[in-house]
Amino acid sequence: MKIIVPVQLVPDLVEELVVDGSGTALDRDSLRWKISEPDDHAIEQAILLKEKGGGEVIVLALGLEGVEDVLFTAAAKGADKLIKLTGDFEGGFNAHAMARAFLPIVKESQPDLVLTGVQTHNGMDGAVGALLAEYLEAPYVGYISGISLAGGKATLRKDYPGGLRAEMEVTLPAVLGISSAESAPRYVPISKVRLVMKTGKIEDRDAGGFDPGGAASVRRMFPPEVTERATMIGGSAEEVAAKLAEIIKEQGLI
């Protein structure tokens, strides 16, 4: 079983988000990149499948700042091969561009399964997995929270709206969009990641230029205009608690 996991880095939302001088994108210098959470789950799911049934896990990511940490952490968890995409992405990239950039590497790897995070919080032109599946002419199922493999097919647990889940079956090779792995992404101590950094290898691949076609052009990026805001209650936790208890009582809720 060969599994390839193309992952994306996204701005860490814990940091303050600043719009750059162009007014159409986030200021790259003031943000910190981290692995997109569903992609972290996609890596975990790939490792879980490898542990159960054997195989090879390839993790692939764009060469943004912090990508080495992401890739070596994946190796410390059990990924076998790491690939970093280089190229001219200073002009920006989107899901369509990423899917096209991942395509040749995914194609030549001839995987049985492609696992991707089902969405990124900063995307506005679709999921890389769905796009990649179409370019590969492979089936796609998204919002997956469980996979079992048997006889060239995968049985999937898919999230439907309203908290409903369904069992689906897909013929491999297939691309799957992961919401969450069967268990939470494992923790690896930083010492283990450092060890892998010393011995591990990242293969660089040139993606050339990025073709963003398929997304709408952006005229303006801005923080939401706040029209309404909560009445803020100040003080210590005890003071806040006492005031909230009064409010809840006044509303007749207790």
């Binding site: 995307g123 679709g126 179409e134 998204g142 898919k158 709206p161 969009g177 398929g214």
Partner: peptide
Amino acid sequence: TTVGAELAGLLSARLGLPLITSC
């Protein structure tokens, strides 16, 4: 949604049409 978002990406790539999500 977990239904529409899946379809939207597929249709965009298949038909070569622009896609706007989170709209």
